[in-house]
């Protein structure tokens, strides 16, 4: 929760000095999130059970719920794109939660991480659309009326370019803002002030991860369904 301050005392700074790699902090915290997720994945893969318990239960609740949500919204085709969506959700969620640990910083509190993920989403939903519709994918940009098609093409182009930018800025602004509030409250009232905010920010960070997931799902739905 160092909020990108000029001289943050985070574990990544200590690690960076000892490794001598000169990488920015968000890279280390993204690696930490990846390590956590890979470890969970390998542990769970080794002992999958028919009647889940413990960790498997948690993950089955999350992914079962999300998959139902996706299938309800997109339809059966949603099962094909669900791995991407679910990975996005859990990855952002873990990165957001890492920001709540004292001495750690959320990787999503940096524009670069979010921009990378948003561009991935942009490329992915266009790829899915082109794969499904071929050249007819351009009809998605044309609108329903023929003589308005050139105007709609420009409007849709602006709208589609705005999507990754708005994904990036929303996630970045919310997470960075929460980190800064945590630091300020910690300065004002060391432990007492931050404890209540933790509950609010656990909610906020979950919502932000869910928003990213939901918007990606809506974009994928737009590229999978019929052009109007």
């Amino acid at each position: 929760m160092s909020a990108g301050l000029p001289h943050p005392l985070t574990y990544s700074v200590i690690l960076d000095e000892s490794l001598g790699l000169h990488l920015p902090p968000h890279v280390y915290y993204m690696w930490l999130a990846m390590i956590i997720l890979f470890t969970c994945g390998f542990i769970l893969r080794g002992r999958l059970q028919l009647v889940p318990g413990g960790l498997q239960n948690v993950f089955e609740t999350i992914f079962g719920g999300l998959e139902d949500f996706v299938v309800l919204n997109i339809g059966e085709e949603g099962r094909k794109v669900f791995p991407f969506l679910g990975a996005m959700f859990i990855f952002i969620l873990v990165m957001n939660y890492i920001g709540l640990i004292p001495g750690c910083d959320a990787a999503t509190a940096n524009v670069n991480t979010n921009a990378a993920m948003a561009i991935t989403v942009f490329v992915y939903y266009n790829y899915i659309g082109i794969k499904k519709w071929g050249f007819g994918y351009i009809k998605h940009f044309m609108g329903p009326v023929v003589f308005l098609a050139p105007l709609m093409l420009v409007l849709e182009l602006v709208s589609h370019i705005a999507r990754p930018l708005s994904l990036t800025l929303r996630l970045f602004g919310n997470i960075r803002g929460e980190e800064i509030v945590l630091v300020l409250l910690f300065v004002l009232a060391p432990v007492l002030g931050t404890i209540p905010m933790y509950f609010l920010f656990i909610l906020g960070k979950t919502i932000q991860a869910f928003i990213f997931f939901m918007l990606t799902m809506i974009y994928l739905k737009g590229s999978l369904e019929h052009a109007h």
Binding site: V158, S159, L165, S166, R170, L215
Partner: peptide, 13 residues
């Protein structure tokens, strides 16, 4: 939370 951002970002794009 998704609504407000689109207005601003589309204008800037």
């Amino acid at each position: 939370a998704t609504i407000g951002m689109q207005l601003v970002v589309a204008t800037f794009i």
